[in-house]
């Protein structure tokens, strides 16, 4: 089954590439667009530079994303669980949430001299909200009965928070993390277009050189890394949520 799925995915990528090549060959696509073969050649010529830029982008991402995890999960948990915390946190979050991460870029670049911090902030903003919201939802939707069962067995409030509410919210938290990874990674590239070194800046540089194949090559790399990051979260999800009814079948 796994093997067949893998084969299907491989086929789909091959067919897509061939169609693209064919469309370029018979001039359906404008000649300014790169062909797959050009992109492949660009990747080949850039192969020694890509890891360096990817490394920059991934470290921006990791810094911002880790910060989002460490802050969003506890705050989301506490405001989902305690009404008073909710009443305190919600108005702040509701006002900041609608500001798109992109709008933070100028702010971040001015307030942090350091490019690394500036781009990490953008990623933090991008991944914070999905993680916060899903953690919040998870904790506020813990079935009352789960809590009551623990109470009759003599559990303290703190014990219930950690041993009942947390595992009960885990599916929601993890899906927030998955969304957070996706949005955070998109923000890396956006943030880097304005200064910090990394894949995003490379796209801009290649644009000034009018090297569209190289632009496409970097875009492809961004796509592949994003895909891998999301896959990693999915694997964690499958491993942690094996108890969930019908979970494995969703993938």
């Amino acid at each position: 089954m796994k093997f067949r799925d893998g084969l299907t995915s491989l086929t789909s990528i091959t067919v897509f590439t061939l169609l693209w090549e064919l469309a370029s060959e018979i001039r359906i696509l404008p000649a300014t667009l790169p062909r797959p073969i050009d992109v492949a050649f660009s990747i080949y010529t850039l192969i020694d530079k890509i890891p360096v830029h990817a490394y920059h982008s991934i470290s921006h991402f990791m810094a911002g994303f880790a910060m989002a995890l460490v802050i969003a999960i506890p705050i989301g948990a506490l405001s989902g669980w305690y009404h008073l915390v909710r009443a305190f946190i919600k108005p702040i979050v509701e006002i900041i949430r609608p500001i798109p991460p992109i709008a933070w870029i100028p702010f971040a670049l001015i307030s942090f001299r350091n490019d690394f911090e500036a781009s990490s902030l953008i990623i933090f903003i991008g991944s914070f909200f999905p993680i916060f919201t899903n953690t919040f939802l998870g904790f506020s939707n813990v079935p009352l009965e789960y809590v009551e069962i623990a109470k009759t067995l003599g559990a303290s409030d703190l014990y219930i928070l950690v041993k009942v509410a947390l595992p009960s919210s885990l599916p929601s938290i993890l899906s927030g993390i998955r969304t957070g990874v996706g949005i955070g990674w998109m923000c890396v590239v956006a943030a880097e277009m304005f200064g910090p070194p990394g894949l995003g800046l490379q796209i801009m540089n290649m644009r000034y050189l009018h090297d569209i194949s190289a632009v496409a090559a970097y875009m492809l790399i961004i796509g592949v890394i994003g895909f891998i990051l999301e896959r990693i979260v999915r694997i964690v999800e499958i491993k942690t949520l094996k108890w969930q009814k019908g979970f494995i079948r969703q993938f």
């Binding site: 079935p143 069962i149 623990a150 003599g154 014990y159 041993k163 595992p167 108890w243």
Partner: peptide, 22 residues
């Protein structure tokens, strides 16, 4: 309970032992 609720993230044994863990 009437609903026969068990914690879905715990195995049967872990559910049975929850009160002792507490």
């Amino acid at each position: 309970p009437q609903s026969l609720t068990l914690y879905p993230w715990r195995t049967v044994e872990e559910n049975v032992l929850f009160g002792l863990e507490i």
